[in-house]
Design a binder for these strands. Structure first.
Lengths: 334, 334
DNA sequence: TCCTAGCATGCAAACGATTGCAACCGATCG
DNA sequence: CGATCGGTTGCAATCGTTTGCATGCTAGGA
């Protein structure tokens, strides 16, 4: 808890002016090498650290990117965040992260707060209403939207069309003709995309697709168990791995064999997915890459360019033991 | 992306001086109510938002708390973060979060960076060496350490003594006399504490305690499988739930019945723990509370007081199906 | 020797907000 | 009727840094 050393202290100690010190430290070229060396030495000795607040204030542009995330607990989000952090840092920016707890109102509040501190905003799987989202986009800073399509903003997303096709083709390959989708939060754009692309692909593959509402957590998956069991589907696709794992747990508790009686597959492939019982077939995507692309879009835009076209990331299906040959008919009990 | 409205713009529009506007907006009492109302109205209409950088710069104190976390992916961390965020926000502070990826060198870098932007630091389960940690504590801002004991800083931690006792008493109650601990990262202070308190309690309960090294992720648990199998223990305690789940997965893959042949229990009780196969017996702690306590310590300190004594949080054992009666002898195979 | 070019340095303004202090107002009191 | 006082308001300094511009110095050419 020592006293703060300021530029003027370094200047005094080095016997020069503050401008000289500033220039020496910032590597200006109109200053003699000896002075630079001397000033640097003195600054180091005094333990000088520029006051970032003053610096950014003077420079006028905030080197901070505000990020909203629905749920930090979900590894999907935190891994994308990892990629984003790294990329932003190498661009000299840092991240201010806010978690909305899957609540649109809270997300709006967050945006409102973050915009005060940030030179750019990244909305991650935004749960905002269309209206709320447009209001957010209208902020006086550039906005990138991850996993949600929107105009006048940068967009980076998973290619759900390809994703859904991979999933369904895998299942039809195993003989499944009737598939149930356990959905995510109603506020989730990507849930809408999953449904839309699943429906479309199901039609083209001549698969019957049923849908029920679910949520985003293990609990939601567990609670969906009874409904799943009573459906006539031979395979289930869940909104994400957490839901899938919850569902597997219910199925196990209730004696339903996976995949003998029912196949389960999911989106995201979070690390824990390979440790569920049985391990979950899921769609892997390069999550860190997603974050990096978001930064790329942002930095182009900050550089003055227009928004590039949306980046779409194609996932890859990781087949594990939770999917298998379709039974002729699902056993109904309870 | 509109133009920024500044204080002076509001002043001009309202026909007063900037000082008046500033005071009106900040609720100073030496200003007439009508002027306040008028200025507020004008400001609202113009969409004025104070430049936080300028504001904080002028005020001199950064309203930011820098936080380092080993791994955002781990729900344990993200939930504590939730509590911390909420508490800090109600105190007018916001969080700058950095993830070290379990790497001490990276953590040191982070601390170095965060301190430039923050009025306080929270080190979460710091993986720093003692020396590194002391260097971090010596920063010109107050530091709170979560889950790691250290002098001249605020400390909030889980009561591992109580935790280890709960675990071992549960196991001895089931007849286990030989327990294996699968450890965490060598850099983790809390791993050290778990070992220390387990040893001590094991001695007092007349339990034989073996230890092996592990890590912090599901992979580490899975990889520990063979060693676990060949040990003579009838029960295993893992560093955390992720390790526990990984281990359960290996045991399943290799036909070891849990808990019939081997019991597994763990620390942390993250949400997914109840969905492992079998559900994991684990130690629940009020994670959000941990974050709130950290903020409480910090705000006291920021208020000028000395550091309060460490806060210790007592966990609660959640017994699930992964622990059961001890077998007379573990089957050895492979 | 003097002038000039060119490099190195310092002075001072600026970023946008807050705040101590002075100035001003009308009203009250002596 | 003038001084005083309480209550409002504006002026100007200030936070720490960057940077345009002026200035001083040195060296080289005429």
């Amino acid at each position: 808890m020592a006293e703060r050393v300021r530029l003027i202290d370094v200047a005094r100690e080095a016997g020069t002016s503050v401008s000289t010190v500033s220039r020496a430290l910032n590597g200006s070229d109109l200053i003699s090498p000896e002075v630079v060396a001397h000033v640097r030495a003195v600054a180091g000795q005094l333990g000088y650290r520029a006051d970032k607040r003053a610096q950014e204030f003077k420079l006028g542009r905030p080197l901070t990117v505000g990020v909203t995330v629905p749920d930090l607990t979900n590894p999907f989000f935190s891994e994308v965040l990892k990629g984003l952090t790294g990329a932003a840092r190498s661009g000299g920016y840092r991240l201010l992260i806010g978690e909305s707890g899957e609540d649109p109102a809270e997300e709006l509040r967050l945006v409102d707060e973050l915009v005060d501190y940030s030179g750019a905003l990244v909305l991650f799987s935004s749960r905002l209403t269309r209206q709320g989202l447009e209001k957010a986009i209208a902020q006086p800073v550039p906005v990138v939207s991850i996993n949600r399509n929107v105009k006048n903003a940068g967009v980076v997303a998973i290619d759900y069309r390809a994703a859904s096709r991979l999933l369904l083709e895998h299942l039809t390959g195993l003989g499944h003709r009737r598939v149930l989708y356990v959905g995510g939060p109603a506020t989730s754009w990507s849930d809408g995309e999953r449904r839309r692309t699943l429906r479309r692909t199901a039609r083209s593959l001549d698969v019957t697709l049923d849908e029920i509402d679910g949520g985003w957590s293990g609990n939601h998956g567990y609670d969906a168990g009874p409904t799943v069991l009573h459906s006539r589907a031979t395979a289930v696709i869940t909104f994400n791995d957490l839901v899938g794992i919850g569902l597997l747990s219910w199925l196990y508790d209730n004696g339903v064999e996976v995949p003998a009686e029912l196949s389960v597959a999911s989106y995201d492939d979070i690390p824990i997915a390979s440790y569920s019982r049985p391990p979950l077939t899921s769609l892997r995507n390069e999550r860190a890459k997603l974050g990096e692309l978001a930064w790329e879009q942002l930095s182009k835009r900050l550089g003055g360019a227009d928004w590039p076209p949306p980046d779409l990331l194609t996932p890859e299906l990781v087949v594990r033991a939770s999917t298998g040959q379709a039974r002729r008919r699902v056993r109904i009990r309870g």
